[in-house]
């Protein structure tokens, strides 16, 4: 089976939830789904045994603000769930707004996803509902709550935060 057939098969599995697709590379297919349908789509791939979850890539899309500080477009967190079957890479893509960054966990479908989910949560500040483990993965124990280092607006810690870190 060649790579394109694999991608077609993957796409067929997700057909009913697809909002948009694009091909960033010849061996890749990005499938955008809504946060509500995201879990059902993932389940369809897992049930059909299409490839394996390579990782979750988080991305931050900061809010667009005009000169007067009015928010033209609100900020979004994007999650790319990369599945691979041989050379074919299919990513289920989903975005959630800053105000309500909630997504379903997929750990009940793929238990080994827990480390990727924890990384995604602490570095981007998404809330993965019902994920089995919410402990810190890479950040230190005394890292302040609500500071998400891979968001674009994080440049460095403030002096107070640094001071608080040293004192504790």
């Amino acid at each position: 089976m060649d790579t394109l057939t694999r991608l077609e098969n993957g796409k067929d599995l997700l057909l009913e939830w697809i909002e948009e697709t694009n091909n960033p590379e010849e061996n890749r297919l990005d499938v955008w789904v809504s946060p509500q349908n995201f879990k059902a789509a993932t389940k369809a791939l897992v049930d059909a045994g299409w490839g394996y979850l390579m990782t979750i890539t988080g991305k931050d899309k900061p809010p667009v603000v005009d000169e007067d500080g009015n928010e033209l477009q609100s900020g979004e967190i994007i999650g790319l769930y990369h599945f691979a079957q041989e050379a074919a890479v299919l990513s289920i893509c989903v975005k959630v707004p800053y105000e309500n960054p909630k997504l379903d966990t997929i750990c009940d479908l793929i238990p080994s996803a827990t480390i990727y989910e924890r990384e995604f949560m602490e570095l981007f500040g998404v809330d993965l509902v019902d994920t089995p483990d919410r402990e810190r993965l890479v950040l230190p124990d005394n890292w302040p709550d609500g500071v998400y280092p891979l968001r674009k607006d994080f440049k460095q810690m403030s002096e107070e935060e640094k001071l608080g870190k040293e004192l504790s």
Partner: peptide, 18 residues
């Protein structure tokens, strides 16, 4: 990174530096 799995003991024995 950090992995934490299979803790059959109920008491949390993970202590922070504090």
């Amino acid at each position: 990174r950090l992995v934490q799995v299979n803790r059959p003991n109920q008491t949390d024995l993970n202590w922070s530096w504090d």
